[in-house]
């Protein structure tokens, strides 16, 4: 048997774009599952808010549906009867952070990011593409947002984020 298949990024080069006030990077690989058919959803977050529990992060997507970040075994143990689908490679994790990150996001989607505190989650359309966005706790660089975007269109998505970042930076 030949050696193990080599993984490959969705991008040509390592993604790390920075302008004055905002920075976009590809976040480290993580395991991501779609969660549905949960017999007892108590303990899982309701609309709009993320919840963390035993190394797993749950992001509500819609009625009875979540994305879960974290180990698949732990997830299966936590929700033994649920329908779990591995979608780790269907999405690319991105991190957008900086004092002007909000202005960048205002150019990508219609959400009200001033009413989007740390822990908030939304599934939204960004430049014609579906994305899941979660606000992380503020870092030293200001507000930080974790995004999950479709892998096949990730380069188009990043193109638009970069254009928005340049436009925001050019405003000074």
């Amino acid at each position: 048997m030949a050696e193990t298949l080599a993984p490959c990024s969705a991008f040509v080069a390592t993604l790390d774009v920075a302008v004055e006030g905002a920075r976009l990077t590809e976040a480290p690989a993580r395991t991501l599952h779609h969660v549905a058919l949960v017999a007892d959803p108590s303990g899982l977050p309701g609309p709009g808010r993320a919840a963390e529990e035993g190394g797993l992060t749950f992001l509500p997507l819609g009625p009875g549906q979540w994305l879960a970040i974290g180990d698949g075994g732990a997830l299966a143990a936590r929700l033994p009867s649920a329908a779990l689908t591995d979608v780790s490679d269907g999405h690319v994790p991105l991190l957008l952070e900086g004092p002007k990150a909000r202005d960048v996001l205002a150019r990508l989607s219609s959400l009200d990011y001033e009413a989007f505190p740390p822990g908030a989650v939304a599934r939204t359309l960004m430049m014609q593409l579906a994305a899941t966005i979660r606000r992380l706790p503020d870092g030293p660089a200001g507000p930080a947002y974790a995004l999950e975007v479709a892998r096949s269109s990730a380069r188009s998505f990043v193109h638009h984020v970069e254009e928005a970042m340049r436009a925001v930076a050019a405003r000074g």
Partner: peptide
């Protein structure tokens, strides 16, 4: 119906 639908087009 207890059924879940998820697009996995991009995953594979």
């Amino acid at each position: 119906r207890a059924v879940s639908l998820v697009s996995v087009t991009d995953h594979w």
